Amino acid sequence: MLGLIFLKYVCDAFDEHRNKLAKELAEDGVPDDRIGDFVEDRDQYTNAHVFWVPEAARWSWIAANAKSQGVGKLLDEAMDTVMRENAALTGVLPKVFNRHEVDQQRVAELFDLITDARFGGTEDKLAQDVLGEVYEYVLGNFARAEGKKGGEFYTPRSVVRLIVEILEPNKGRVYDPACGSGGMLVQASKFIEAHGGRGHKSDIAVYGQELNERTWRLAKMNLAIHGIDGNLAARWGDTLADDMHPDLKADFVMANPPFNINDWARDESDVRWRYGVPPRNNANFAWLQHAVSKLAGRGTAAVVLANGSRSAPRVEAEIRQAMVEADLVACMVALPPQLFRTTQIPACLCFLTKDKSPGRETPGRPARQNPFHRRPRNGRDG
């Protein structure tokens, strides 16, 4: 469904830019017989960061030929063509519409339904903005419909926004080791847009990794929809077992890893376990230590954790104590109950930083009072 909506957006955005080019050329006095050549020039689109869509992959062409050639066949061919012509989408779009187990009548009905929707923009809102809202709406509803499984790829928008507003990722490298459908990386870019004059979204470089193949594809589409050139690794994979960004040092780490994993790829010799080897039956402190291992010298991190991590016994308590004594913990934020629709487990946010010195200049902030600076309390170090 989202792949089909994405193709419709790509085609509408292409048509939007094509019409704009044609109008500008006509106003410049270019003859009608030459306008056609100009608007079919691939460079006119790639230079404007618009996906290039060959004629046989355009929605209007598919609609005109669907009955004679089969809508499922044309959609799969269109997906393949768009991925081949746009490197950022390689291996991302679904080619599932012409399978023998897929009801072609249903595909045709769905195609007709989406045909009536226009993602073309107005002066106030471009096609990209419209689809971004549609995409988030569909993801949110799908997460609710999927129940617990939906939590694999969707973090409540309010939680994502809270993390981003506290970290203020204005500039530098942003990393999400369990990126799901890419919501935190997208919100980081939106933060810059919402605080105009304090940076441009090209000032941040986003990195991520995701275990689930389908969710990885959703994330790639999500970043593409929002015009973000992100590095989500060449494929999907387990971050704790196979870190695909081994040399990355990030200025901001944001993560909502799965809670309380009791069956994970535990390697006692892993250099990330600097503060203690996490227990086999719970990966919470593996995720925390992975986040620390990815921080640049002045980096900050926010990790969503099950509330029980604050008082977990035995081995986890020793790791927690070692991290506190290393002065890595900036603060903990308890989240309201039942905030996550996909799990009833109470959650909290753990903010980490390697530098609590006052007035430091960080990638995301001008030199000013560090919000994580430890201030004296009652005459003692707070």
Score class of each variant (00 low, 15 high):
residue 59 W to D: 06
residue 73 K to D: 09
residue 102 V to A: 11
residue 55 E to F: 02
residue 63 A to Q: 13
residue 65 N to C: 00
residue 52 W to I: 03
residue 73 K to I: 14
residue 108 A to G: 09
residue 88 A to M: 10
residue 76 D to I: 00
residue 114 I to Y: 11
residue 61 W to A: 15
residue 102 V to R: 15
residue 64 A to S: 12
residue 111 F to A: 11
residue 53 V to C: 14
residue 72 G to Y: 04
residue 112 D to L: 02
residue 82 V to Y: 03
residue 45 Y to D: 12
residue 116 D to H: 13
residue 64 A to V: 03
residue 57 A to K: 00
residue 112 D to N: 10
residue 77 E to R: 12
residue 45 Y to A: 08
residue 91 G to Q: 01
residue 86 N to K: 02
residue 66 A to P: 00
residue 50 V to A: 03
residue 86 N to T: 07
residue 114 I to M: 07
residue 61 W to N: 12
residue 70 G to E: 08
residue 66 A to K: 07
residue 119 F to E: 09
residue 48 A to T: 05
residue 116 D to N: 12
residue 112 D to P: 00
residue 98 N to F: 00
residue 106 R to E: 15
residue 119 F to D: 10
residue 48 A to M: 03
residue 96 V to M: 09
residue 92 V to T: 15
residue 79 M to V: 08
residue 57 A to Y: 02
residue 65 N to W: 02
residue 77 E to H: 11
residue 63 A to G: 07
residue 87 A to I: 10
residue 83 M to H: 07
residue 102 V to T: 13
residue 83 M to C: 11
residue 60 S to M: 11
residue 81 T to S: 14
residue 95 K to N: 06
residue 56 A to T: 12
residue 50 V to T: 11
residue 99 R to D: 13
residue 54 P to S: 12
residue 83 M to L: 04
residue 47 N to F: 04
residue 95 K to P: 06
residue 81 T to W: 02
residue 86 N to M: 06
residue 92 V to D: 06
residue 44 Q to V: 01
residue 79 M to L: 03
residue 85 E to I: 08
residue 102 V to G: 00
residue 79 M to D: 06
residue 43 D to L: 11
residue 55 E to H: 10
residue 109 E to D: 15
residue 81 T to L: 14
residue 80 D to H: 13
residue 113 L to G: 10
residue 41 D to E: 14
residue 50 V to Q: 05
residue 108 A to M: 03
residue 91 G to R: 00
residue 83 M to Y: 02
residue 68 S to P: 01
residue 91 G to D: 07
residue 105 Q to W: 01
residue 91 G to V: 02
residue 77 E to S: 15
residue 111 F to W: 12
residue 58 R to T: 04
residue 67 K to N: 15
residue 100 H to G: 09
residue 93 L to R: 04
residue 52 W to V: 01
residue 44 Q to Y: 02
residue 119 F to A: 08
residue 92 V to F: 05
residue 112 D to M: 08
residue 74 L to V: 06
residue 43 D to V: 08
residue 70 G to L: 04
residue 117 A to P: 03
residue 78 A to R: 05
residue 114 I to G: 02
residue 115 T to P: 00
residue 83 M to Q: 14
residue 102 V to F: 01
residue 86 N to V: 00
residue 106 R to Q: 14
residue 69 Q to K: 15
residue 80 D to P: 01
residue 96 V to D: 07
residue 95 K to Y: 01
residue 57 A to T: 07
residue 81 T to M: 14
residue 48 A to N: 07
residue 89 L to P: 03
residue 104 Q to D: 04
residue 116 D to I: 08
residue 79 M to A: 15
residue 42 R to A: 10
residue 70 G to S: 07
residue 118 R to W: 06
residue 100 H to R: 14
residue 71 V to L: 07
